[in-house]
């Protein structure tokens, strides 16, 4: 059954990941206070994407999954981005 090797993450590594995530949260809250105007959205979403990727990679263990799983997850996000692009082809060029 479970004869496959599983990667076991250490408690320490989970702690490090959490620290990074909390730092990023602080960063995005701080940035919002500074009022970058038009850029604030981009910055906030960028930080959120970094955080999301971190959660996917370490907490959700993607780093240690098979190549196929990683491609699958990446592909799904690509498809979603393409949907956004096509949708905005309409809204931006009206």
């Amino acid at each position: 059954m479970s004869t496959e090797k599983h990667h076991i993450s250490t408690y320490m590594s989970h702690g490090v990941v959490l620290t990074i995530l909390l730092a990023l949260t602080a960063l995005s809250v701080g940035m919002a206070e500074l009022h970058f105007g038009a850029f604030s959205v981009a910055v906030a979403l960028l930080v959120a994407s970094v955080k999301g990727t971190t959660v996917l990679t370490y907490f959700m263990h993607l780093k240690y999954e098979s190549m196929f799983t990683r491609i699958m997850v990446g592909g799904v996000f690509v498809i979603y981005v393409l949907v956004i692009v096509l949708l905005f082809f309409d809204y931006l060029f009206r």
Binding site: S28, A32, S40, A44, V47, A48, K51, V55, M60
Partner: peptide, 17 residues
């Protein structure tokens, strides 16, 4: 983690912008 992931995106959209 999915619940967390979704919140990570909801948070800036609802509170920070």
């Amino acid at each position: 983690h999915l619940v967390d992931l979704i919140w990570i995106f909801l948070f800036p959209m609802m509170y920070l912008i």
